[in-house]
Design a protein around this nucleic acid. Structure first.
Lengths: 222, 222
DNA sequence: TTCAATATAATTGTATACATTAAAGATAAT
DNA sequence: ATTATCTTTAATGTATACAATTATATTGAA
């Protein structure tokens, strides 16, 4: 992506993630031009990329709308993600380097240190390290197809930000999974790594569905 | 996709599929404008869509190149496709309508009639009906996520056109799988349907890898 | 000859004007 | 009042001109 397009992409995505652009909202090119300070051409390029990443949907001659996710959609995404991330973990076991293993352990320990300190939780830090952890596994997999496919599955805001609502105990569970994954990869045991990863994703799904359904019920009651 | 964009998309894709645009080739916007008879804007839109569908890859400030598939890429794609199409088959068993079941049987029988007549094989007919068969299953699945993901996996030319080199016996095997899938769906047996589908895709992979590796060897020998 | 630096050309990136289509509003008929 | 039709407006789709970047060719020196 080129400079102006990337600027537009990040700005629009940020507004979707923050909730400033609500699901179903009609994103008009003119307004986005004002928001981003670039012309329609890069705005349109950004919108196409956001459609690829499933943040928005395009309707011919009608423009672009923020994607709306149903409960069934979210279930599908988690189910797919569990399968794909397991594949990633399994393959990573075959290809991962010692450097990458060291980095995984380092990330796991950094998060652990945070959890051991009894002050406020640094969710942003956790999200960042968590993303790095999964990225290293992806890199170790050496598969464009898996990387691209998983990237498009995990992108949607609802999924990537699950951990925002985690309790300390849930963060601890998640990090325990990371520890086990690192152990499995160290042992070059693909089946083990895949199995832990599946557990890891299913736990995330459980948590997410609970939070999501609860918040929906609250909204309906208002 | 709008009119001009769609025209460009189909034309460029056709040239990739036919081999007129070889893997690795640099697709210059100017030349595509001449080829398609539309301006750069829809050509660029078409190229973005072709990138999403993995026909091409984009390099910042350098343009668009026809995607090159390694043997490992192709293995990955088939592996992913086996998993995803199995998911589709399993879910279709839960949702498929009687009308859709009837249509599946009809397609299966139409291909069978073709195979029973001992004149030349109508590969185009087979490819079309085969596509319809898999599409009906997708529709019965009721999952945007699965549909979009699988769509992007199956698109690449090398995969979708596997059957072009099938012998009569291989076509018969493929259609036998279709028959079993229809039976499994009729019985609303998701596990059975998924299992047959996996067999179906693995057989396609076998055939493809054999053809592909053989043709590569021949090319190297010339 | 080979390599580096520079100038030139070609290509992609961006902005904008124009065309086409869909949405919104006004008017008229029932 | 309501619906239907027309008019107007605003949005997306398309073409093209200009800017920035990259690739190519040329020149010069080692």
């Amino acid at each position: 992506m080129s400079k102006a397009t990337e600027k537009a992409y990040l700005l629009i995505r940020e507004n979707i993630l923050s909730g400033a652009f609500l699901p179903g909202a009609h994103l008009k090119e003119g307004e986005l031009v004002d928001l981003c300070g670039v012309s329609r051409t890069p705005v349109r390029d950004a919108l196409r990329q956001l459609a690829t990443d499933r943040y928005v949907v395009t309707r011919r001659n009608q423009g672009v709308f923020v994607n709306e996710w149903s409960v069934d959609d979210i279930k599908d995404i988690f189910e797919l993600r569990a399968i794909l991330e397991s594949m990633v973990a399994e393959r990573a076991a075959a290809h991962i380097t010692d450097d990458q293993l060291a980095e995984l352990r380092e990330i796991q320990q950094a998060i652990q240190s945070m959890l051991d300190q009894n002050d406020i939780l640094k969710i942003e830090f956790f999200l960042h390290q968590n993303k790095r952890f999964h990225q290293i596994l992806m890199d170790a997999t050496h598969s464009r197809t898996l990387a691209d496919t998983l990237g498009q599955i995990v992108q949607p805001p609802l999924i990537a930000q699950t951990a925002r609502q985690y309790t300390r105990q849930e963060l601890q569970n998640s990090n325990d999974h990371h520890r086990d994954i690192a152990l499995a990869l160290e042992a070059r045991d693909g089946a083990w790594a895949a199995s832990v990863m599946k557990t890891h994703i299913i736990a995330a799904q459980r948590k997410f569905m609970n939070s999501y359904l609860t918040s929906e019920k609250n909204e309906a009651a208002e």
